[in-house]
């Protein structure tokens, strides 16, 4: 009896501890970024860091640390990705849960989710050898290593998250809503557009935001396919260098304790805060639709 009691207690504690690890890790990461990132601002004025000044830590004369162009690059690529992924993802989700026959749906859902299993380095590689040359040919550009290339690849990468959550949200709409709509003589299209989708709006927004969080944080793909020029981009056809790519490229070569080192932590902190805000907002919206769904 004693041993049984011991193991019962043991597993309860072990499970609680493993849950605690996740929370501690998140807190630890935030603290680490904050303490190291903060030190950057004792050497770099805030007005320079958040300005359009060049990001040139390895300058010939005076290094400058401005993240304006990189922040713009990150936003450009992410919003571009969302412009592609949102109509595609929501369309797929609506089709899967409302229109597709069961057999097709059982084929579609795992296929879309399988997209998430493709390693980002493979997607980046496809960006170099396939999407890049294709864009260059279609738009008559000298090369295809630009923001649009990154946006297309990130759209593909955020689709699984977006579709999966949007589909769950649409699926959770009570049957009674639709039945009422049909009873009033509405067609399936009218029901979908006027009743089903609006009633799970918060869930759909949560899906979009989580997809966006996925796109902002992605590193390898954009690093490979967007050209990594540090100049301020003028549009989707310019090469860009995102915040994630900068941290990935430069962290390995930066001596610890330098202004450059802390500036990279500050970049990571900015990214962390952006993704955290997006995810918190998405979670709150998702929670509100879960309540409604019950």
């Amino acid at each position: 009896m004693l041993i049984r009691h011991f193991w019962d207690q043991f597993w309860q504690k072990a499970l609680a501890a493993s849950a605690g690890v996740a929370v501690l890790t998140l807190g630890g990461i935030f603290l680490l970024l904050l303490t190291n990132g903060w030190k950057a601002f004792s050497q770099i004025p805030l007005s320079e860091f958040f300005s359009a000044a060049a990001w040139n830590p390895a300058a010939y004369e005076t290094p400058t640390f401005g993240i304006g162009a990189m922040l713009m690059s990150t936003l450009l690529v992410t919003l571009g990705a969302m412009a592609i992924a949102v109509p595609l993802g929501l369309g797929t989700a609506a089709f899967m849960s409302e229109l597709a026959p069961a057999r097709l749906r059982n084929l579609l859902k795992p296929s879309v989710e399988m997209l998430a299993a493709v390693p980002s380095v493979v997607i980046g590689f496809l960006g170099i050898v396939l999407v890049g040359p294709f864009l260059a040919r279609v738009f008559h550009l000298p090369n295809g290593l630009n923001a649009l290339n990154g946006a297309i690849l990130l759209a593909v990468m955020s689709l699984p998250t977006l579709v999966s959550i949007a589909e769950d949200a649409i699926h959770a709409v009570p049957k009674a809503y639709k039945e009422a709509s049909y009873a009033l003589g509405a067609t399936r299209w009218e029901t979908l557009l006027r009743v089903t989708l609006p009633s799970c709006r918060s869930g759909l927004i949560a899906a979009i935001m989580l997809g966006m969080g996925r796109a902002i944080g992605e590193t390898m793909t954009v690093l490979m396919a967007t050209g990594n020029a540090t100049a301020m981009p003028n549009g989707l056809f310019d090469p860009v260098r995102t915040l994630t790519a900068t941290v990935a490229i430069e962290m390995g070569e930066t001596p610890q304790g330098t202004a450059h080192y802390y500036a990279l932590f500050a970049c990571a902190l900015v990214l962390f805060v952006i993704t955290l805000l997006i995810n918190v907002a998405a979670e709150r919206l998702a929670a509100s639709y879960r309540k409604k769904g019950q």
């Binding site: 060049a54 040139n56 090369n143 690093l223 540090t230 301020m232």
Partner: peptide, 14 residues
Amino acid sequence: VLGRDFSPTLKQMN
């Protein structure tokens, strides 16, 4: 070769 900074439009490959 340059004796100054690279152009910011330099595409920095891996």
